[in-house]
Amino acid sequence: MSNRTIRSVDDLAQLPDGELLSCLGALRAGIVEAKRQHAIALREHLIPVDSPFVFSSFNWRPKGPQRLDTPIQLKPDTPIDEISVRASAREALRELSIFCIEDLSAISEQELLQEEAIGAKTVGRLREILARVGLDFLPNPNTEERAREQSKAVLALPYEARALALRNLEDSAPVSALGLRSSTLSRALANGHDMVGDLRRLPLLVLCENYGKREAREIYDLLMLTDRPFAGSAAPIELWRHGLASTKELSIPTAPETPIGELRPWLGTSVDSLGACGIHTLGALRVAASRGDVASFRGIGRVTAERVVGFLGAYVTPQPYRRGVSATAG
């Protein structure tokens, strides 16, 4: 079954009857989780204190008809016995001196997950129950787990709010404040890059050696959102060579002194053949093209020569004035 995006009540109304209850249950859980991430973002000062909660759409993949649990009237002092969890999980909670919902707010998710009888699904259910009475778990004492929570909270922000949170981010801020994907965050912490400044000060080559291409591009893009110079930034062609910029993001050079190697994003390996034939600058290539010499170069075939000349004509060299053609000719 394909994903469905729910943006309005009308989208819900279009669902088949057998999917409606299942979607409502998933939607409720999605809203609770989004509110939790928003609360973490506020608590960690990732967004301004007056930032409103936004939940504009919901992506849901149908899993077949499911029954929506009938909600009970929950209060902070509601006994654990009235919560719908497995008996073994309930017994484990009692052993942790948790006898009512409010007691859950005095423990962290990580501490609960250390119990053999309590899994991630149960913790998610308890988190939802806490949210329904306006409470939350204690922040995880484990530094890495808390970093993951903070990073996840930033990732959950709408793009505009996320960009605002990253703007002018200080070097002393934890690296999780960037909102890195889980795998990238793990790599950063393993590399000892705990602060934003640790990443910002990395030379471009070191960044690419320590991180995969996708991770390096993610870090580079997020640091750019902080509105502060990236210490490892280099010439655009160097960013392209390391996979941090696409050809579309580059400006096509037009200066005659441009080294021929900087045309590689558009001309590919043909720049090596041109260099071997003594063409070392863009100016020299333009002169050779104007004389019709490109096709005669060793290692440059007819198709490649046409591509080189076409590139120059389209992006570098203005179209020449053609004698005898009037600008007003019809």
Rank of each mutant, 00 (worst) to 15 (best):
F55N: 09
H45W: 12
S8W: 06
A165Y: 02
V303H: 13
G25K: 13
H242C: 11
R286P: 01
M224N: 13
G124K: 10
K63I: 13
L42T: 11
N191I: 00
L239T: 11
P48H: 11
L185A: 09
T226W: 06
E257L: 07
C277M: 05
R7I: 07
V206Y: 03
A87S: 12
T281G: 07
A327C: 06
T122I: 15
G192Y: 06
A190T: 12
S57W: 02
L74H: 01
L27I: 03
D293Y: 08
S51A: 14
S251N: 11
H242G: 11
A231E: 14
T226D: 02
G283W: 10
E218F: 10
V308S: 03
V308M: 08
P203N: 14
S176K: 03
E44M: 09
R200Y: 02
N3T: 15
C208Y: 04
L222Q: 02
E91G: 10
F137C: 01
H45F: 05
A235V: 04
I31F: 02
N142L: 09
I72E: 04
E44W: 05
S176G: 13
E128N: 15
V196K: 07
A131H: 13
D136L: 07
V154D: 00
V294D: 07
R28D: 05
L267Q: 08
A216S: 15
A327S: 09
V294A: 01
K213I: 12
F53M: 04
G25R: 09
V303M: 09
A89S: 12
E44P: 08
L74G: 01
L312I: 05
V32W: 08
R28M: 05
S97T: 08
R217W: 02
L202T: 00
L223D: 04
R36W: 13
A147F: 08
I80F: 02
I300E: 00
N142Q: 09
K152V: 00
R28F: 08
F99S: 09
Q319N: 04
P16V: 02
A89L: 05
L157R: 00
F230T: 10
S176I: 01
P139L: 05
K152S: 14
R67K: 14
W60H: 07
D77A: 11
L112D: 02
L96T: 01
A245N: 12
A13C: 09
A276Q: 14
L74C: 01
Q66F: 04
I98A: 06
